[in-house]
Amino acid sequence: MNDQMIYRVLGSDEWAKAVALGEYKGAPHDIADGFIHFSTRDTLAATLALHYAGRDHLKLLHVPVAPLAAHIKWEPARGGTLFPHLYATLKVQDVFRVDDVRLGEDGVHILPDDVG
């Protein structure tokens, strides 16, 4: 895959902890799976709806693929769609940008204009 940016959604508290530690090892389900789950631009809305329904005050991490390419595997999930999985700890310094993700009045997450 040649997507230049991948995305990770997490709670504001999880991100604050990662910043304090300088790294993000993943949520419990990531640790159990042995990799950190990421989304692409095309799968992000579905990921939010499926795994973060009703959750507000989320963070969206924008992570460039190139510096981590040696540790990313593109593996099939939902219906054969390829998802990027990071087989390493995510260093805070590897995050290009962080956006707030809020719930709209309709219960759908509002993504930044350049992503959604």
Rank of each mutant, 00 (worst) to 15 (best):
H109C: 06
P84M: 10
G104A: 10
W74D: 07
K25D: 15
P67Q: 08
L86R: 00
E105M: 02
E14A: 10
H85K: 13
D106Q: 15
G54S: 13
D106K: 04
D99I: 09
A20V: 08
A88F: 07
Y24I: 09
D99W: 00
Y52N: 13
D56E: 11
V65P: 05
M1P: 11
V108M: 04
F96W: 14
W15Q: 14
V65W: 09
V108C: 07
L21T: 15
T89F: 06
L103K: 08
K59P: 02
L61S: 04
H109K: 03
G26I: 11
A88S: 07
G54E: 00
G107K: 04
P28V: 12
V92Y: 01
D13F: 00
L58M: 05
D106A: 14
L61M: 06
A77M: 08
G116A: 00
R78M: 01
D33I: 08
R8V: 01
V92N: 12
P28K: 13
S12P: 12
K25C: 14
D106W: 11
P112V: 06
F83V: 07
L82P: 11
A70C: 08
T43I: 09
R55T: 02
R102S: 04
L50Q: 15
N2A: 10
A77K: 04
V101K: 00
H71P: 06
H85F: 13
L48P: 01
V108Y: 11
G116P: 02
W74S: 04
W74G: 08
A45K: 13
G79R: 08
V115Q: 00
H51V: 09
L60R: 01
Q4H: 08
D42F: 04
V92R: 04
G107Y: 02
V101E: 10
H57K: 12
D113S: 15
V9H: 00
A77P: 03
L68R: 13
I72E: 00
K17T: 13
L111T: 02
G80E: 12
V65Q: 14
D30L: 10
A18V: 02
V65N: 06
A20G: 09
T40P: 00
A53F: 05
M1A: 07
L48Y: 09
A88M: 02
K25M: 15
M1Y: 11
K25L: 15
A27S: 15
